[in-house]
């Protein structure tokens, strides 16, 4: 785009749509930018030297362990979400309108219940004398340790984050022209190949979009790991909470937050090339 074009479209933006964004911008600045700025600045100012809090973070092995664990749990949750959500979203995109509504409700209704309540429900299900273990015992199996394990955390987080994976996937899959599948078959492609060569590539934008949302949300999870996990499965946000609320060390807590933020941006930068599409979905006439 040439210079005058972009500046004129910018001035058009200022004179019209800009006003519409003001309320949202005002709230974002007040509740997001200001506190974040405070946290960042205190992470640098509340120490003997500017970088003291960061040097402490990277020199404390437990921090690194938890940081890596946070990314690992987020990655596992994302992966499980993709595997579980993909066939579900596909089913949603091909069934009739009534069944589709039911499938959408199944995704959204749990979504309307607060995360804390859902996590507490998982406590009831997963605890040593919970529903799952009682059933296992009744069937003659041994008890399984679920609560206060990473498995328990992964199960709970996956359930809570699943809608964030299903909805973008569904949105993309609904736009895939199923006649392309017929076309591939008529051209001699086995149904399995048709899936991997045509359907999967076309649905990947949905996978990336959902995976990015789930992964980033999972990195910041606090309540679920706290209630379902033990010492061995705490995530970075739990440590931040300890520093800030228990130890009142805003500098160190802030540094942890900034590390997580920077790591997240780094991840986004790595993921961005995959999300860019060289082609447009529609074949023209639709």
């Amino acid at each position: 785009m040439s210079e005058p074009e972009s500046s004129s479209s910018f001035s058009r933006f200022l004179s019209g749509p800009a006003l519409l964004t003001l309320p949202a911008l005002a709230i974002l600045i007040l509740v997001m930018a200001v506190p974040l700025g405070t946290v960042i600045s205190r992470s640098f100012t509340e120490g003997e030297t500017v970088l003291e809090n960061y040097i402490w973070f990277f020199n404390t092995p437990v921090n690194i362990t938890v940081l890596i664990r946070t990314f690992r749990i987020a990655a596992v949750v994302t992966l499980v979400c993709v595997i579980v959500a993909y066939p579900y979203a596909y089913a949603m995109s091909v069934v009739g309108p009534r069944l589709r509504l039911i499938l959408i409700m199944c995704v959204l209704v749990p979504f309307w219940v607060s995360g804390v309540v859902r996590t507490l429900a998982w406590v009831i299900l997963l605890q040593d004398s919970g529903v799952i273990n009682k059933t296992l015992l009744a069937l003659g199996f041994d008890k399984v340790k679920l609560i206060r394990t990473q498995l328990g955390v992964t199960i709970g987080m996956t359930q809570i984050l699943l809608p964030f994976m299903i909805m973008p996937l569904y949105a993309v899959m609904r736009g895939i022209d199923l006649r392309l599948i017929q076309a591939a078959k008529s051209l001699g492609a086995h149904p399995v190949k048709t899936f991997f060569q045509v359907y999967l590539p076309l649905s990947l934008p949905g996978v990336f979009a959902g995976a990015t949302i789930v992964f980033i949300l999972a990195l910041g999870f606090y309540i679920t790991p706290l209630l379902l996990g033990g010492q061995q499965s705490s995530m970075l946000s739990t440590l931040v909470q300890q520093q800030v609320l228990s130890l009142l060390n805003w500098g160190r807590g802030g540094a942890m937050g900034v590390v997580l933020l920077v790591a997240t941006f780094g991840f986004l930068a790595l993921a961005a090339p995959f999300m860019r599409q060289k082609y447009k979905m529609s074949g023209g006439a639709r």
Binding site: R179, P201, L202, K278, Y279, G284
Partner: peptide
Amino acid sequence: FQHYALFPH
């Protein structure tokens, strides 16, 4: 096909 059904990717 009427709507071409070319693979967009």
